[in-house]
Amino acid sequence: MGNQKLYKGSLQTIILKLLAQNDKMYGYEITQKVKELTKGELKITEGALYPALHKLEAEGLLDVEVAKVGNRLRKYYKLTENGTKETANRLSEMQEFLNTMQQLVNPKFSLE
């Protein structure tokens, strides 16, 4: 079980990345998918997921669809055009972050 705090700042990027791969998803599906992909290492808490989704929706990165599934209404989220562009930006930012962390944590020394 890793330190959940380390993942905190990346929640929005994780959501965007998942939506880029899956067309449309609903909240519960996202929590399950993350759990499955990380083999339980990362658990998105409900109290953090929905605020993040609503924030992304307010920023115009996500669009909403509602469908009746069985006896209840289900809200699906999908990327808008802007959302697709922003996903690419955020993923490259994250990659930079990972590289920087890598350098800090595990510096490679050279003779130059």
Binding site: T45, E46, G47, Y50, P51, H54, E57, A58
Partner: peptide, 18 residues
């Protein structure tokens, strides 16, 4: 219980802001 000690409060607050 999985929503934590604040229950639905975070969700409601963020939705209201939005």
């Amino acid at each position: 219980k999985k929503f934590g000690v604040f229950g639905f409060m975070n969700v409601v607050e963020e939705k209201q802001k939005q």
